[in-house]
């Protein structure tokens, strides 16, 4: 197992290298010029050229890539073209809101979606099952920003239970922190709950038809024990897989959710950087997201062995 983990960790290095090359090339080829954006609408072409030169953006692709890759290899993500701040510092400033939002969404989604999926499977064909599936379809097909606006209108503007926008760091108190995150997490959780509830139901239905479940029932085990101890554990592998893959959904959804609720997280940092063509920031954030995704997939693979001891690496 330890050997497998080491091999997987080592395998992330070439993966990240390919991602780095891909991201850098894509940004190089994409239209847009940060110097022109910095200089402002009324700057002359000559002034823009001078700013471009001062930023080193007029140098050849290979020189720029080489310098950037060398810095990355030394743990330096570079400096933002616009703010002149280290990209690492900007990411550090923004990581807490995004992590908090994603973790809260993940926890709440799992706490809601798994029981819903189990319930729907246990009562297949019933009104409960149909209700859960209807909720899942709605959650999956309604755009995140629509859910966000509706929730903000009802719970912030009309009922005044939560703020419309903003983020309060955990250091500012647990309740203010949670209060600012409830609506964004509910918004982001919609699609995730739908996804997990559906896969839980499908996986549970398959397991519930197995002989060992019939045996468990025949032994006189209670309904709860059969569903949550015997069936759910065996249905867990596909659920864990989808939870892991769904992190990509969370990342994409976080970009929209952070914009709708004005949360100063990595999603907004990415969008702002893309609109401005702040290349070092885009590259840094994309690398970070890619790394996080690789690590989450590794964790998912390792979790398989917990839920299914037959799996060996």
């Amino acid at each position: 197992m330890l050997g497998y983990i080491v091999r997987r960790v080592l395998a992330t290095i070439p993966v990240m290298g390919v991602v780095a090359l891909f991201v850098f090339s894509l940004l190089y080829l994409a239209p847009g010029d940060p110097a022109a954006i910095i200089a402002g609408d009324q700057a002359s072409p000559e002034q823009i050229a001078l700013i471009r030169a001062s930023l080193g953006l007029d140098r050849p692709f290979l020189v720029r890539f080489g310098e950037w890759a060398w810095r990355i290899a030394h743990g330096d993500l570079g400096t933002s073209i616009f703010t002149n701040l280290p990209v690492g510092h900007m990411i550090a400033q923004r990581i807490e809101p995004t992590l908090s939002l994603m973790l809260l969404t993940l926890v709440v989604s799992l706490l809601i979606a798994v029981p819903l999926g189990v319930l729907a499977a246990a009562r297949q064909g019933s009104l409960v099952d149909r209700g859960v599936m209807l909720f899942a379809v709605l959650g999956f097909s309604t755009p995140v920003f629509v859910i966000g606006y509706v929730l903000a209108y009802v719970f912030a503007l009309r009922l005044d239970w939560f703020p419309v926008q903003g983020y309060v760091p955990l250091a500012g108190g647990f309740w203010p922190f949670l209060r600012a995150l409830i609506l964004p997490a509910a918004t982001l959780g919609g699609i995730y709950i739908a996804l997990i509830a559906r896969i839980t139901r499908a996986s549970m239905l398959e397991v519930l038809s197995q002989d060992y479940i019939r045996t468990a029932r025949a032994k006189g085990l209670g309904r709860g024990a059969v569903l949550f101890v015997h069936a759910l554990k065996n249905a867990a592998v596909p659920i864990v897989t989808v939870v892991g893959l769904g992190v990509a959904l969370l990342i994409g959804g976080a970009v929209v959710t952070e914009s709708v609720f004005a949360i100063p997280g990595l999603g907004r940092l990415t969008v702002d950087a893309i609109l401005r063509r702040d290349y070092p920031v885009i590259q840094g954030v994309v690398l970070l997201f890619s790394f996080a995704y690789v690590v989450i997939n590794l964790l998912v693979d390792l979790l398989y062995t917990v839920f299914d001891p037959r799996i060996r690496y």
């Binding site: 209108y153 912030a156 503007l157 419309v164 926008q165 914009s259 709708v260 004005a262 907004r268 702002d272």
Partner: peptide, 8 residues
């Protein structure tokens, strides 16, 4: 950045 959120 979102105008609707700013209005709210």
């Amino acid at each position: 950045p979102d105008a609707a959120t700013a209005a709210a």
